Amino acid sequence: MTQPLSPSPTLTPQFCFSPGALRDFLRTSRSAVDDTITQHLNALVTPAKDGFDPSSTSRPVPRPLSHQIDAGSCKTFKDGVLFPAWHGRSQVLSYCALVATSPDPDDPEAALREAENERNRDRVVNERLDPYSGRYFPREARTEQLASLIRTEQSVENIVRSRTWDVVSRRCGGSSGTWEEALAAWRKTNSLP
C-alpha cells in the first residue's frame, strides 16, 4: 500500500511566512496522492483473480473503462493514504490561517510601511497638475499576504479534493456523499480534530 510521501512539516510561523515552502509542501502532497489518484486506484485492481485464460488472447476484447475495486482495498487506501494526506494539508492550512489572523510583532517591513504611510499623509495631492498624484498603493503586511495565499490555496484544495473524490466514488462504488462528509467521518473515527 502506498503511503503519503509528504509528511506534515513542523508548523511554525516562519514556515507559513515562507510562501515557497508552504506551496512546495502543498504541491508535493497533492502530486503524491491527488494528481496520481487514477494510478493509485489502478494498483488496487486485481485483474487476474481467476487466473489467466489463454482463449482471452484469441480475439480483442475491449477493456472496461473503469474496473470496480474491492471495497476493502478502497477503504484501506482511503483510510491509510487519502484521508491522512488531506488531513495533513488541512492542518497546515488551518495553522497558517491562524498565523495570518494573529498579530505579527516580528514583521521586518513594519517600520518601512509606517514611514511610507507617514509620507503619504504629508503628501500634497493636486490632480489638476498631476493626475497621478492621488495614487498611493500601501504595502501589505505579511499577515495580509499570507491570508490571501491561504484563501487561494484553500480554494485550490477544495477543487482538488472534489475531483479526487469524484474519481474515488466512481471507481470504488460504495463511496457515497461528499468528500467533506467522508473526511469528517474518518476524523471522528480516528478521534482527530
Rank of each mutant, 00 (worst) to 15 (best):
R121K: 15
A111L: 07
E157Q: 11
H40M: 01
L112S: 14
D35W: 05
R89I: 00
S176E: 14
P47L: 10
D34E: 14
T38Y: 13
R187V: 00
T101G: 15
L22A: 05
L149H: 08
L5Q: 06
R59L: 10
T143A: 13
L149G: 03
E153R: 07
N158D: 11
Q14D: 15
E140C: 04
F17E: 06
S102N: 12
R123V: 02
E114P: 01
S191L: 04
Y95H: 14
L146G: 04
V124W: 09
R119T: 02
K75R: 13
L93T: 11
A85S: 10
R151D: 12
A32L: 00
R135A: 11
P108R: 15
D34S: 15
R139F: 09
G20K: 11
R142F: 02
D107L: 02
V92M: 03
S133K: 08
R59Q: 15
R119P: 00
E153T: 04
A115C: 01
D122M: 03
A185P: 00
L41Y: 11
R151I: 01
V160R: 07
L11E: 11
I37V: 15
T76H: 05
P19Q: 13
L93I: 06
T57D: 11
N42K: 09
N42H: 09
P64D: 13
S6P: 00
I37L: 12
S175N: 15
L192T: 10
W179N: 13
P103S: 13
S148K: 10
R63I: 05
S176L: 09
H87K: 04
N158F: 04
R171N: 08
Q3P: 00
R30Q: 08
V160L: 03
L11A: 03
F137P: 00
A21T: 03
T2Q: 06
N120I: 00
S175R: 15
G88M: 00
A71S: 07
T152R: 06
M1P: 02
I159K: 13
